[in-house]
Computed example of a mutant assay.
Amino acid sequence: MITASIVAYHTPINELSNLLECVIKSSIDKLYLIDNSSNDSLRDVGNLSSKIVYIHSANLGFGHGHNLAIKKAIEFGAQYHVVINPDIYWDGDVIESLATYLDNHQNCGLVMPKVLYPNGNIQYLCKLLPTPLNLFGRRFLPFKELQRKIDEHYELHFTGYNKEMEVPSLSGCFMFLRVDVLKKVGIFDERYFMYAEDLDLCRRIGEVSRTMFYPEVSVYHAYEKGSYKNKKLLKYHICSVIKYFNKWGWIFDKKRTQKNKECLVKLIN
Rank of each mutant, 00 (worst) to 15 (best):
R148E: 00
V111I: 05
T131A: 03
L125Q: 09
E96Q: 05
P130Q: 08
E155D: 11
D91Y: 13
K72Y: 01
I74L: 07
H153K: 08
R138Q: 12
L133G: 01
N121I: 01
G137V: 10
P142Y: 10
L102Q: 01
Y124L: 09
Q106I: 14
L135H: 05
V83D: 10
E96K: 15
N59E: 09
S49I: 13
L68Y: 06
F140C: 08
I150G: 00
D151S: 07
I55G: 14
Y54S: 04
K71L: 10
F62M: 07
N85E: 15
A73H: 03
K127Q: 06
F62A: 08
E145S: 11
L68F: 08
Q106K: 15
D151Q: 09
L125P: 02
V53D: 00
V83A: 02
P132N: 11
F76A: 00
R139E: 08
R139G: 15
L116V: 01
R139L: 14
V53E: 01
P118C: 04
A58N: 07
G109I: 12
R148A: 01
L110R: 12
N119W: 02
Y124P: 10
Q106E: 02
I55V: 14
G77D: 00
G65D: 11
I84C: 05
E152Y: 12
K71P: 01
K114E: 00
K71E: 00
